[in-house]
Design a protein around this nucleic acid. Structure first.
Lengths: 143, 143
DNA sequence: AGGTAATAGTTGATTTTGTAACTAACAACG
DNA sequence: CGTTGTTAGTTACAAAATCAACTATTACCT
């Protein structure tokens, strides 16, 4: 019979990170899924384009650390909804420049506002210093 | 043309959490996937059984906050590998008690050691106080 | 130039997850 | 008892993620 054990799973960092990430993702998803029928990858791509403007799928993948097939399919979905346009790069015809349309920009601004609200709600329970520290440590861990 | 924008995605908490969680999960996965061909849910279930001993699928699901279908399938995989045994609860024949076999316990101890090493490596770059604070905030966020 | 390797992006096959419906067993209430 | 409602766990089907293979184009190398 397996004996009890004092290893604390709830103090295991990868486990904790997953729980927190899951909870916050679901919470945020609840905010935007109703509005546009978007997947997580979709809004990430939308945000990158909203923030940086015109860029290629490859650049998005690198910056956001999303695999190219995921980016490709998210771009397709966003293009289907007329949230972005594709334009072949004539100096290197393998890649294409992506750019938000008016509708895409509007959706981005809308979602950005929701994101900022959500962020505020999440961090409201922490002191400003704690929040800064938390983010610093998370950035460290992400590398 | 979409203008640049000063919203900082890398300071958006759900995004940061996902990046950190992803990175740490992958890192840990690299440690155990080679050893046993296990999925994330599998080792979670294994850990719960290793820590708490004999318990039902329902209990595992509740404690770990894993949906019952995921638990069910993880239990099946672990049973296939002879890592656990199932025993019907005769006082309530709907549920069954799960318990690690010798092989299951050995795998658990092995993975636990790897987890502890990995944890140590992850937190090595932080001060003890920072680590404590980080975990406290993550627990907060997970609720 | 010609051949080989590398790169951007897409597509298809296989796994894994999520959702809903199902079976079997128990509970509660008349 | 008998009907209705719940619960533990499984299964079936749809949505999504993963991985490999593919097309088209460019870069490298001799």
């Amino acid at each position: 019979m397996p004996p009890k054990d004092d290893f604390d799973l709830h103090a295991f960092l990868p486990y904790l990170l997953n729980q927190a990430a899951e909870a916050s993702s679901l919470g945020f998803q609840a905010s935007y899924k109703g509005r546009y029928g978007m997947l997580r990858t979709d809004w990430r791509v939308l945000f990158h384009l909203g923030i940086h403007g015109r860029m290629t799928a490859k650049d998005i993948g690198e910056r956001a650390k999303i695999h190219k097939t995921k980016v490709s399919r998210a771009v397709q979905r966003l293009a289907d909804r007329r949230f972005l346009t594709r334009e072949r790069d004539e100096s290197d015809r393998r890649s294409e420049f992506l750019e938000l349309t008016q509708a895409g920009q509007a959706a981005y601004r809308d979602l950005r506002a929701i994101a900022q609200e959500y962020e505020a709600r999440l961090t409201a329970r922490f002191s400003a210093e704690d929040t800064v520290l938390l983010k610093r440590l998370l950035v460290e861990l992400a590398r």
